[in-house]
C-alpha cells in the first residue's frame, strides 16, 4: 500500500462519516431550519425551547 492508497482510504472514510452525519440529522427530523415544513416536530426546535 502506498501513501496514495492511505490518502484515498482517508477521503472515503471522511465522505462516509459526512454522509452518515447528514443522514442521522435527516432521520432526527430536521437540521433546525425554521423554514422547514417539519420544524414543528423537530428535535432541535425542542432543544432550543428547552434552552430558553
Amino acid at each position: 500500500m502506498s501513501i496514495i492508497d492511505y490518502l484515498l482510504i482517508a477521503v472515503i472514510i471522511i465522505l462516509g462519516i459526512l454522509a452518515l452525519r447528514y443522514m442521522s440529522r435527516q432521520r432526527n427530523g430536521c437540521q433546525g431550519c425554521q423554514h422547514c415544513q417539519y420544524y414543528d416536530g423537530c428535535n432541535i426546535k425542542r432543544k432550543r425551547e428547552d434552552d430558553q
Partner: peptide
C-alpha cells in the same frame, strides 16, 4: 398542500 405549520422571519 400545507399540513404542518412553517415559520419564517
Amino acid at each position: 398542500v400545507t399540513v404542518e405549520s412553517k415559520t419564517g422571519e
